[in-house]
Every structure is written in C-alpha cells, then in structure tokens.
C-alpha cells in the first residue's frame, strides 16, 4: 500500500449471483490522495458496481480493496466514517425540509447541536439555499435538489468523496456551483472519485481518469496525456474511439 494512495484496487472481480459474466473483471488501479479521479464508461460498463464495492455496499467476489489503508472487507465500519457518498438518485426525503434532511444525515455521522446547525447553514448559504432551508425538498427544482444532495455527502467533511453523476439533469448555473465547490474541497485535501457521462466536465475537473468497459479498465491516466496518446481532439472523441459507437443498454 502506497502512503500517497487514497484507494488501492487489486484484481477486483465482482460476479452477481445467477450471472455467469463478471460485472467487474479483474481490475486494478490506484487513486492518489487529494486527486479528482474520474471513473468513466458507457452504460453497463461496471462503474456503479466498482463504486458500490469501494463504498462497502457490495462485497467483492475476489480481489482486494483498500481505502485509506483500511481493508474494505474487514474494516468497513471504519471506512464509512471517512467517506462521503453522493448517489445519482436524489437520496433525500421529499416531505422533510432541506434543514431536516441535512440534520438527520448529520446526526447519522454523529454530528449534533449548534455545530451541526452552523455547519448546515454554512453549506446552505454557500449553495444559495439558505432562503429555502425550511421548505420541503419535494417542492425544490432539480438543481436545488442536486445541491442539497451534494451537501448531504460532504456535511461531515469526509476524506474521500464518491460522486455518482452529481450534475446529471441540472442547469448550467447549478452545475457550475457544484463543480467549483468540488474543486474547492479537493484543494482542501479531499480525494474525489467521480463518475459521469459528461466528458467535457470530466476533462476539466479530473486530475486522473480511468475508462472502464465490459468490466475491464481499458485506459487510465491524466486526461490530457490519454487524449494525446490516443490521437484524439478531446476526451469525448477518445472515449468513443476506445469504447466504440455501439449502443449500450
């Protein structure tokens, strides 16, 4: 285990019960500390399965996963304290207000009292939501929900943050606020693992990317270097070159 690695994945394979084909097939990679790592791939490539194993939601069929020096297999409870997860779905309770949602999630991480209240208000203010703190999340626009969803993942200031399509379906303004804030968090030392179908966003945001297809890593490195190596004009062109134009389900 490298001291500068936030995450080490060693020959990870995941086969779902009843399926003969591995969803993730013997992949290995390292994510350096304080990096923004993009895990990119077409639909069904194995991104969500990989992230789920890293977060402790799924167990690996074979292989080894280490998060901040902790074994995902045996030390998942310690890992959960230092990671934050922003799922693709708006994982919030629509009949609770933004404040109530965030208070509940803060409490689940052991945060409480005035410090939690101040923390929530600071984040709501930063994401332009302080005026809506007492409104039910169900009445929010898509962009507002995405912002609250992001706050829920970073409220406890995790060392490592997993984001699954954090900007899907939001307007340019909301996307800009979110990506800018992710860069601020990263500059503060937070390692960010991010999946997206927005190649331009990934190209600008990520310090390193891995492209996964059919459960295997087919390319890994810094975006600019990879684009150059593959003789492509941009990440999207390189992505299509590597994964093909065949439609995926």
């Amino acid at each position: 285990m490298s001291l500068s690695a936030a995450i080490e994945v060693d020959h990870l394979t995941k086969i779902y019960k009843g399926s003969g084909t591995p969803a993730v097939d013997d992949i290995s990679f390292t994510i350096p500390n304080s990096s923004i790592f993009g895990l990119l791939g077409p639909n069904g490539a194995g991104k969500t399965t990989t992230i789920s194993v890293l977060c402790g939601l799924l167990s690996a069929s074979t292989g080894k996963v280490t998060i901040a020096g902790l074994s995902a297999e045996t030390q998942s409870s310690e890992i959960k304290k230092i990671i934050g997860v922003v799922p693709q779905d708006i994982a919030l309770y629509p009949t609770l207000t933004a404040f109530e949602n965030l208070r509940y999630i803060g409490n689940m991480y052991g945060l409480k009292g005035d410090s939690l209240k101040e923390n929530i208000n600071k984040h709501l203010d930063h994401f332009g939501l302080s005026q809506h703190a007492k409104k039910q999340v169900g009445s929010f626009s898509g962009g507002m929900k995405r912002r609250v969803n992001l706050i829920a993942g970073i409220l406890h200031q995790p060392e490592i943050l997993f984001l699954d399509e954090p900007t899907v379906g939001v307007d340019v303004q909301s996307r800009n606020v979110i990506t800018e804030h992710l860069q601020v968090l990263n500059k503060g030392g937070m390692t960010i693992i991010y999946t997206s179908h927005l190649m331009e966003e990934a190209e600008n945001l990520c310090t390193e990317i891995a492209i996964i297809d059919n459960g295997k890593i087919i390319a890994k490195g810094m975006p600019k270097v990879l684009i150059k190596e593959n003789g492509s004009a941009n990440l999207e062109q390189m992505f299509l070159k590597l994964t093909g134009k065949r439609l995926r389900d």
């Binding site: 409870s77 779905d89 689940m108």
Partner: peptide
C-alpha cells in the same frame, strides 16, 4: 430503496440495525 436513501444510509457509519 428506489430513491437511494437506503443506499445512502448503508454508506453511513454504524449498524443498519439501529436505523
């Protein structure tokens, strides 16, 4: 389960039994 709250709770510290 559908809206992802269940998944989020599973990634949080502590036992799901408490939830």
């Amino acid at each position: 389960r559908d809206d992802g709250s269940y998944t989020r709770v599973l990634t949080m510290p502590g036992s799901y039994a408490t939830v």
